[in-house]
Design a protein around this nucleic acid. Structure first.
Lengths: 220, 220
DNA sequence: TAATCAATCGCACGAATGTGGTATAATGCT
DNA sequence: AGCATTATACCACATTCGTGCGATTGATTA
């Protein structure tokens, strides 16, 4: 009973990592003026946040500005997550380029906000990420989804036949011509011919070339 | 002036592809009872939506249930996008597994809602996607971001030295030992030795093996 | 100081590769 | 019926590869 009450009532412990003093003042005040959350620590560098922490008072949510001096802000995400995966990290930045966004998400960020976000959006994002959500600006969410569609494999085929594709797979697996011949009960010469044709179709002249092409262009 | 007014006032043209009649009735009524949007067509199969369309009356937004009979709902996304990339597709489904989600996003979906979403969420999502956003449920957004962190390369290294890594890159590029030697002004024998060491460290015995390992385990 | 490691260079040789041919039977298309 | 494609098979040969061995130099470390 007491425990339950504590969990419900304990404010969300928010840390802020941000080098712009004016902005960090604004945000920390905003948070502290909101019931249900407290901005307990403010750092201007990632290093400080990692050094100055004690295991008892881990943050629930970290608002992190990437692109500030000192070590790479992106790396900071990983280091914080290393301390505890329970720390939810929300990026708060002016950068909206795909590279930073992608790197931040890959490193384990749970949210991504641009600095032009409204105070209401920032507050709701803190609540949302605490509840297991992934707050983002509309623009950011759109970029994230577009990244997926850019993953879409073009599946080049180069007009390979089924047999050629089969043998190509064995080449990628590292088998020699003789091993391939044995495996699919063909003559060494037949395998040799197929490989010749594969090389012609893919315009390569070596095993390394063909394997690299297979992976880079998602053949097979 | 007149044009501007038309753009502002023309309702969002929404299509619904959904085989559950009760649910599709509910949703289409919900949309038609909301000012600013109209549900002009309802299909129970993807095929119908692709056949029965005329270039003049393209939808702005399609609410698509994946996992209904007929062709794969995922493929439907691609086909609709092929007709026009301006069509914004929002998935509306009961499935929340990573595979369906991933495939849908890769195929070009601009939003992903679960069927337990509130009517308000559905309406706001239609507006949001029209404005260039990417509406998702909290749970879905979280899954999407988690997918990114699962991409994170482990960067196996196998204790390769800088020189070895350099030569490994040339192998991947398809150069022969002699070509590598010429390129970095080394003796053929030195390159040979480096490659021997690389093979030992990576536990491979052929060029195909080493290249495959490089790509599968993100070495270099 | 001794030891270890990385980078360099060398030789030898069997195994495998890449490439130039040619040829036959089966299948499908038009 | 004729043509194209595919899969099959063979030969030959120069090139390249993989791997066994050993050796010297310089830098770093114990």
């Amino acid at each position: 009973m007491k425990r339950e009450k504590k969990i419900q009532n304990s404010p969300i412990n928010v840390w802020l990592i941000e080098d712009n003093l004016a902005y960090s003042n604004t945000i920390s005040k905003l948070i502290n003026n909101t019931s249900g959350m407290k901005c307990l620590k403010v750092f201007s560098m990632c290093e400080d946040s990692i050094k100055n922490f004690s295991p008892e008072e881990l943050p629930d949510v970290v608002l992190l500005d990437i692109g500030l001096p000192g070590i790479n802000g992106i790396q900071c995400i990983g280091k914080l997550k290393q301390i505890s995966t329970d720390i939810q990290i929300v990026i708060l930045t002016v950068y909206d380029d795909n590279d930073k966004l992608f790197d931040a998400l890959c490193s384990g960020a749970s949210g991504y906000l641009l600095k032009d976000s409204s105070p209401e959006k920032i507050i709701s994002s803190i609540k949302e990420v605490k509840m297991g959500g992934a707050p983002m600006n509309m623009l950011i969410a759109n970029k994230v989804l577009k990244m997926f569609s850019s993953f879409k494999q073009t599946k080049s085929d180069y007009g390979l036949t089924d047999r050629e594709r089969e043998i190509l797979q064995y080449i990628v697996d590292g088998l020699t011509k003789q091993q391939i011949a044995d495996k699919i009960f063909l003559s060494f010469h037949t395998v040799n011919t197929h490989i010749k044709n594969i090389y012609n179709k893919l315009h390569v002249h070596s095993r390394s070339g063909v394997v690299t092409k297979v992976f880079k262009e998602n053949i097979i």
